[in-house]
């Protein structure tokens, strides 16, 4: 079980959180004309790397805030956690 540092609450056990997917994907702006490919990249296409991955987690049984986790998908090492607007 991972030990995750919520940027708002501190270190808590994984069972308080829900995984929320790749955090490098940006939603296209509303009302913007975009190609099918751009849209598919946003909705479906993910790199799913082995190694470092920036991802969203949701402190679902805690403060209910979404935040970013920089994690190694192979070793589960967590390098850093950030608030949604913060960059690595």
């Amino acid at each position: 079980m991972l030990f995750i540092k919520c940027p708002y609450c501190g270190i808590r056990s994984q069972n308080e959180f829900a995984y929320g997917g790749d955090a490098t994907v940006k939603r296209p702006e509303l009302n913007k004309e975009i190609s099918d490919k751009e849209w598919d990249d946003f909705v479906y296409n993910r790199k799913s790397p082995r190694g470092k991955h920036l991802e969203f987690w949701h402190h679902i049984s805690g403060c209910r805030q979404w935040f970013k986790v920089h994690r190694d998908t192979a070793t589960h090492e967590i390098f850093k956690t950030l608030k949604p607007h913060e960059e690595l």
Partner: peptide, 13 residues
């Protein structure tokens, strides 16, 4: 609820 929170906190803060 999680869906709404996602959009409010991440997409359209």
């Amino acid at each position: 609820l999680s869906h709404l929170e996602y959009y409010l906190q991440i997409v359209w803060p």
